[in-house]
Computed example of a mutant assay.
Amino acid sequence: MGDFPQIGAGERRLLNLKTEACWSDHRFQERAVLPAVEALQVLADVCRSVRPELNLHRMGAARFDKFLALPPDGGAIAAYCDLSTLPGGGLRAALLSRIQAGAARIRRMVTHAQVVFMPDDGSGSAEPFAPPARATGATFSVDPVRLYEALVPFGPAYRNIVEPLVLDAGAARAVIQAPTHAGVAGSLGSPFVLDAAFHAACVWAQRFAGVVAFPVGFAQRHIATPTRPGQRYLAQVVWVGREGGTLLFDLKITDARDRHYEVLRGVAMRDVSGGRWVPPAWVRRGIPAEDQG
């Protein structure tokens, strides 16, 4: 996937991050954590406030370094945004928080997410996306109820794949319903659509790579048209390869008429549980009727 640019010296802003009720449904090891897609929206909002002319729909070098745990009482989070202007006009943004670590309870800053918002190149549309070749092997499908009960155990707000997820050895294809419960989407569109596309990649990784993989970054993202609450979309997740323990995918989101909404390149997924999470045997074997008791 290549090296990510490091956060350099620049401006630091204090954020009073108001938690949304639906975020409590996004959990890792029994604790609610900020979704990566929401971290991107937080960073986009800050960048828009300081550089209103910046095109927030072109971004790259995204990295999701460490989960930001949410307070159990649903209160606000004291976080920080570091900003650095890059040669060529891009703006690098990072979301950080201060934690206490070790027996001495030493306070230190931790980076949770970072991304570079790119200058507009004038293309006006998403980068062309070559669909995968038609599968020559058998396909495997997972019912949405089964998917969210056993493979991506998030709460109701994040159960937005609404038809059977279809997998083959080269790709995953998902039908996603953007919910309306979160109100108006942010400047990057409905965060639930891309989040659900990551779920499709997670299930593909469980079936064909034998790991429970979470998104840890991407190389490029181009939003042609922001997704909207209440609309239905199609996500195509294409297997690209592996770099060590990291699985790489390309991802396209369209509507039923094949109109492009966004394209991601170099989506990086890997096990972040230290091997504690293992896919169930039925998905690794491709036999959905197993282990249902």
Rank of each mutant, 00 (worst) to 15 (best):
F218W: 08
S190P: 00
V203N: 04
V193P: 02
P215G: 07
I223V: 05
A196V: 02
V211P: 01
A200V: 05
Q220S: 13
S190I: 03
H199F: 04
A200Q: 10
V216Q: 05
V238Q: 11
G230C: 10
P215D: 07
V212G: 09
P215L: 10
V240K: 13
H199Y: 07
Q231E: 15
R221Q: 14
P191L: 12
I223N: 01
Q236L: 15
V211N: 02
F198C: 13
W239H: 12
V211G: 00
C202T: 06
V240T: 12
P191C: 06
V237C: 06
G217N: 03
A205K: 11
D195T: 06
F192N: 07
F214Y: 15
A224F: 01
S190Q: 10
V238Y: 05
V211K: 04
F208R: 11
Q206I: 07
A201N: 00
Q206P: 09
V212F: 13
S190K: 04
A224Y: 00
G210V: 07
S190M: 09
P226D: 11
A213K: 03
C202V: 00
W204L: 06
T227R: 12
T227G: 11
A197H: 05
Q236M: 14
S190L: 01
V216M: 08
A219R: 11
R228V: 10
D195I: 04
G189L: 03
V240H: 08
G230H: 04
P226I: 10
A196T: 07
V237A: 06
H222E: 15
F208I: 06
L234M: 14
V238N: 04
Q220K: 13
A213I: 08
F214E: 13
R207K: 14
A224K: 03
V238I: 13
S190W: 01
Q206R: 10
P191Q: 11
V237K: 01
L234K: 11
Q231M: 12
F208S: 11
T227D: 12
A219H: 09
V238R: 14
A201F: 00
A224N: 06
F198Y: 15
R221L: 09
R232E: 12
L194N: 07
Y233V: 05
V203H: 03
